[in-house]
Simulated assay, not measured.
Amino acid sequence: MLNGLNHITIAVNDVSRSFTFYSKTLGFTPKARWSRGAYLFLGNLWLCLSADSVDTREDYTHYAFSIRSEDFDEFVNHLKSSGVTEWKTNQSEGKSFYFLDPDGHKLEVHVGDLNSRLNACIQHPYENMQFF
């Protein structure tokens, strides 16, 4: 039986550039690095950067990171001053900022969790939404 998310691996064009972005800009803790990849850690998330040809898609797939409400504005200002590209404007519950990493991977910082999202959806459900 599955018991949780193990790790996320993302393809990167330049390991050094992405390593710097994820460790210095986003605050991941470096754990290991080699010529074609790196392992980083954030909270309980194990992130692997893997040198490969990157093919970003035009869908809504993205990776969201949690942030405390009191840290949100300062961190978003930090991201903007670092030159990140915003790819979407938030239209859902909770504060969110959607931005791209150096390879165009879609990322988000979000205040809230599944419970706060479900509570908002109870008040304003999506089309044909069912709760379990």
Rank of each mutant, 00 (worst) to 15 (best):
N115R: 12
E70V: 07
N119G: 09
N128S: 05
C48V: 09
V76W: 02
K80W: 01
Y39L: 15
R68D: 14
S96T: 04
K80S: 04
K95G: 08
N77R: 11
G43N: 09
Q123E: 12
K88P: 00
W34K: 02
W87M: 05
W87P: 00
L114H: 10
S50W: 13
L5D: 04
A120G: 05
V54C: 07
F97L: 08
W46G: 01
V111G: 13
N44Q: 06
M129C: 06
N6K: 04
I67D: 15
G104P: 11
N6V: 02
F28H: 04
N44G: 04
D101S: 01
V109S: 14
N77V: 03
L100N: 04
V76S: 06
L40F: 06
R36F: 15
H7C: 07
N128A: 10
V54T: 05
W87N: 05
D52M: 07
E86C: 08
P30F: 10
T61G: 00
N13F: 06
S16H: 08
G27F: 03
H62M: 00
G83A: 08
L100M: 07
F21I: 11
H110W: 13
F72G: 11
Q91C: 12
G94H: 03
Y39Q: 08
A11E: 11
K88V: 00
R36S: 14
K88C: 01
P102W: 05
D14Q: 11
H7Q: 09
T56Q: 03
L107T: 05
V15S: 10
V54N: 06
N119C: 10
V12G: 10
S35P: 05
K24G: 09
D14S: 10
V109H: 12
L47H: 00
K24A: 12
R33F: 04
G83R: 05
K31E: 15
Y60F: 10
T29F: 11
T56N: 02
D101G: 01
G43A: 07
S92H: 12
A120N: 03
S23D: 12
F41S: 12
E58H: 01
G37S: 08
Q91R: 06
V111Y: 15
D71P: 06
G37F: 09
V15C: 13
Y60L: 03
R17V: 14
G37K: 02
E70F: 00
C121Y: 10
G112S: 07
H124E: 14
N128M: 06
S53E: 13
H7N: 07
S82G: 05
L114G: 06
N13S: 15
L45C: 04
D55L: 15
V109M: 09
R33Q: 15
L107R: 02
S116R: 12
E74I: 04
F19G: 11
D101L: 01
R33H: 13
H110Q: 12
A51M: 08
F99C: 00
G83D: 14
F72N: 11
M129T: 03
F132V: 09
A120L: 03
T25V: 15
K88E: 00
H110A: 06
L45P: 02
S92I: 12
T61A: 01
